[in-house]
Design a binder for these strands. Sequence first.
DNA 1: AACATTGTTTCTTATATAGAAACAACCATG
DNA 2: CATGGTTGTTTCTATATAAGAAACAATGTT
Lengths: 253, 253
Amino acid sequence: MSREKPMYGTSILKAVSVMQCISEQEEPMGASRIAHHTGLPRSTVFKLLDTLTAVGFVEKSAHDATYRLGIGLVKLAGNAMEQLDLVQVARPYLKELNRQTEETIHLGIPEHDQVVYVDKLESRQAVRMYSRVGKTAPLYCTGIGKAMLSRFPPKRLDAYLKEVHPAAYTSRTLTDPEAIRRDLEASRSRGYAIDHGEHEEDVRCIAVPLYRGDKVYGAVSISAPEYRMNAERVAQLLPKLLRCQQNILHRLP
Amino acid sequence: MSREKPMYGTSILKAVSVMQCISEQEEPMGASRIAHHTGLPRSTVFKLLDTLTAVGFVEKSAHDATYRLGIGLVKLAGNAMEQLDLVQVARPYLKELNRQTEETIHLGIPEHDQVVYVDKLESRQAVRMYSRVGKTAPLYCTGIGKAMLSRFPPKRLDAYLKEVHPAAYTSRTLTDPEAIRRDLEASRSRGYAIDHGEHEEDVRCIAVPLYRGDKVYGAVSISAPEYRMNAERVAQLLPKLLRCQQNILHRLP
DNA sequence: AACATTGTTTCTTATATAGAAACAACCATG
DNA sequence: CATGGTTGTTTCTATATAAGAAACAATGTT
């Protein structure tokens, strides 16, 4: 009677949760601690780690028996990026934009209720800024995120705003859903979103969505420290950003 | 009697080979073709793909039922990179080198008989060059690879040279093991390796190994088109590259 | 010295998995 | 239009496998 329908893929799910556990922790952990964190029995974790090590998804430190993620993942992810049309298409235009502006350029895609950064071109003028390819960030307080949200169809936006619990990353983060909604409406009619240090103190950015109808593919942003991103500079950067947006959109399959 | 010892992790191994299959193919494939390529039964592949889709490691195209790698992998790999000490330590020095030289900088690590590129900083002056983070390349014909090989302990080098079957990527690729060996000896005594368009036509690079005793952590390279990388320029770039090497090595745990 | 951690292995049963097979669409091509 | 070859997908079952408990050794802690 309590015959649950067979659950396929359990070992894979467990393996993934082991990897996620490893990836979330700062310090490399041993098998037992991983077992604690995941709630899996130690012996199971051992076997999973064994297999994952064999395929290069995790690596075992020789002396202390701790585990970290392996380069096998990096290799696969490299190919994954190559299979993302958006990244391929956008690349040259992002480079051009980077050359023109000399600022840091990001390309992000929507993934559930987050941005995933899938490309990044740094400014020569090293802005201290924490981002990397593969990193995720909230939608409601990043330039890229807000650009994408501004083109979500109403229902999707409502659902999003109902679910998120906006946290104040900086003193300027908008956390009130209605304030966010107003900001998004402004972004939408303006055609681009602005992040006034709402995610990282002192980092401003302007971002444009990549969309067609209701389909939001991603967004492109230009980031700069506050002093280098005043109204004047924005006016100067904007046309380049918009041109980049159009270039990418036209080439998108 | 033919009782083989139980093979743990089979489903994970199969899942991985499915992902590898997807990653190797240019065009997105359907489940049946994946089944052919991997040699797994179709129904098994279906279930694996289902699970992998659920965890975001692969994505299923809505209309045609084809699969590609998912961003779940990109997210994990991003964290993997963050856990690689070498990448973290090297980053700032690579940026500095990139700024000083205005050329493309690569960081690679040895992985079995290949290089895996784990960081890349592009030159503004767009050199057409095929590389990306996560990509692998042979050791014997790339700057990074040769730099690393030049510091392999003799036995490891012998083993490597016995196993590889060098292919001629360009007209300049060294394919004779003895020629390779001589080149490596020169690199070793010189302290850096040179790639004269041996992997990609017209792309030259100079590379230094990151090693301590017998332990080879990786290598750093500067790449440029042939016309921009003459003896003179090399003489100019070299000190910067060597300083970068020392900086990284000193900070490595 | 007692106890709680670790890392690791062994063992067993219930269960998830693998693979075959069946079905339904869809193309080809004769 | 029939035949055969693809596809995508589901159902089924025996058996191999994975999960979890437990035991053991080696630490470290109190």
